[in-house]
Design a protein around this nucleic acid. Structure first.
Lengths: 146, 146
DNA sequence: GACTGATCGTCAGTCTAACTGATGATCAGC
DNA sequence: GCTGATCATCAGTTAGACTGACGATCAGTC
């Protein structure tokens, strides 16, 4: 799984991004497992906690997740008692998805755990470089207007 | 596919890394398609061009790719005439994998195309930040000793 | 008020990438 | 010459994400 790196790849952006991401996933998994969820599920809980109630599709768009993928994702979270679906009153085609109390507690604990993992993950860069790295990623991921 | 970002995720490392990577893959795909390969195949050609001849397993380790995955990967590249497998003389269990002339030409062209894509991809960061970003990635991907 | 086209959640089926476990061939050490 | 390990391969499984279709619902038009 962990490759012994080759010089030929050490400067290749695709390789670096992929493996940097894998390392983070690997580091986060055990911490999140304590709360019975994985990274993607935590991301769902995170967006659902935002400001106003979201429909399945809206939540999916924010996550960059297909609508059909959201169905299964929410099925799991609902089975775990972390979220609830209600038909929207204004538009009965939509499912409003909300955190349950258990979901909020899970988000709270797992969110903290994730933050800690991210801190440790970035630690080798030092404070200043770590901040710069995040800003650079925001630009490259398209969430920040250059 | 392209999500409208949510503030709740804009600082989440996992989300940023994943989508930054997706964006690069998306940007590189059309450029590489002209050479009939994708990013992973280009990575294989890249390591095979390195230093001394590699066995399938060695190449796989450098890429962080499972041995069984390498079989299919090389099947494709061999079918395209870009690589050749020879049984090793010193150890006849091993397949030595080498670039064909066509493979070298492909690597040359596609490698250039990839470099150009990476340049454009990083351009919004500017020169200095781009360099820092790569170094940071090398640390986080584990190819550089902090 | 009924009709048309679009949207939302769902489901079935497909596709891809990656892994597990087993196999035959080969090697190294005794 | 045996034994245990290693290499490439293959079959089967798993996980994730997509396509296409469906019923239910909405908005706009006549």
């Amino acid at each position: 799984m962990t490759a012994e790196p080759s010089d030929a790849l050490a400067t290749r952006l695709g390789y670096l991004l992929k493996h940097a991401q894998q390392r983070l996933v690997l580091a986060a998994a055990p911490a999140l497992a304590k709360y019975g969820i994985d990274g993607r599920e935590l991301a769902v809980l995170t967006v659902l906690a935002a400001d106003y109630p979201l429909s399945q599709q809206e939540a999916g768009e924010r996550l960059g997740v297909d609508r059909t993928t959201m169905v299964a994702l929410l099925d799991d979270l609902e089975a775990k008692g972390l979220v609830e679906r209600h038909r929207s009153i204004e538009d009965r085609r939509k499912n409003i998805v909300q955190l349950t109390d258990a979901g909020k507690r899970c988000l709270d604990g797992a969110g903290r755990a994730r933050d800690e993992v991210e801190r440790e993950y970035l630690a080798p860069l030092g404070d200043k470089l770590g901040q710069q790295f995040i800003r650079a990623l925001q630009v490259l991921a398209g969430v920040r207007p250059d």
